[in-house]
């Protein structure tokens, strides 16, 4: 696993902070990233398979019952995933050069995920007007926007537009 400094190719004017020059890119071997994802998917598939089997036993059917089709899907998925895992573990590492997956600005992406989770959690209680404005501001900031005029104008305008369309025009309610 390596961490490299990002050299951004261009900027939008001089108002943009050089914040993301200091941000970094996390690169890992693609085969390793694939193994992690495949193992997660295999775990999910085994759980799905056991639940499908339980359903197949509990609700018997003369032909294909409610558990039958999921059982077929789960077995095929498991075979495919094991095939993919085998390729990533034993075939891809022999290839040169090794492909890598880049996670650019990983801290910013993690911050954005945290912002989206907070926005989702607060949407119902705080209402869309405040939540969308506040979290759009934060998301723009995390995405690298540093122009104060943009940060001050866009989020409240966008939030008001969203409120007008969804709440006032479409009748979406928050109680």
């Amino acid at each position: 696993m390596t961490v490299e400094a990002v050299k951004s190719p261009s900027r939008i004017g001089n108002d943009v902070d050089d914040h993301h020059d200091r941000d970094q890119t996390l690169t890992i071997k693609k085969s390793l990233a694939e193994v992690v994802i495949y193992l997660l998917l295999i775990a999910a598939d085994i759980f799905y398979l056991s639940e499908a089997y339980r359903l197949h036993v509990q609700v018997p059917s003369p032909h294909v019952g409610p558990g039958g089709f999921p059982l077929i899907i789960a077995v095929i998925n498991l075979l495919l995933l094991l095939g993919l895992l085998f390729i990533s573990l034993f075939i891809k590492p022999r290839r040169t050069p090794q492909e890598r997956v880049a996670f650019s600005r990983p801290l910013s992406v993690l911050a954005a995920v945290a912002i989206l989770i907070a926005e989702t959690t607060l949407l119902k209680t705080a209402g869309p007007l405040i939540t969308i404005a506040l979290f759009s501001f934060l998301l723009m900031w995390v995405a690298g926007e540093r122009r104060l005029t943009m940060l001050a104008i866009i989020p409240p305008l966008f939030s008001a537009a969203i409120y007008a369309i969804f709440v006032m025009a479409l009748g979406v309610y928050f109680d």
Binding site: S8, R11, D23, L139, V142, A143, G144
Partner: peptide
């Protein structure tokens, strides 16, 4: 959106 965050303002 997450891919846009990766690209940043550049």
């Amino acid at each position: 959106v997450l891919f846009m965050i990766e690209k940043g303002a550049a």
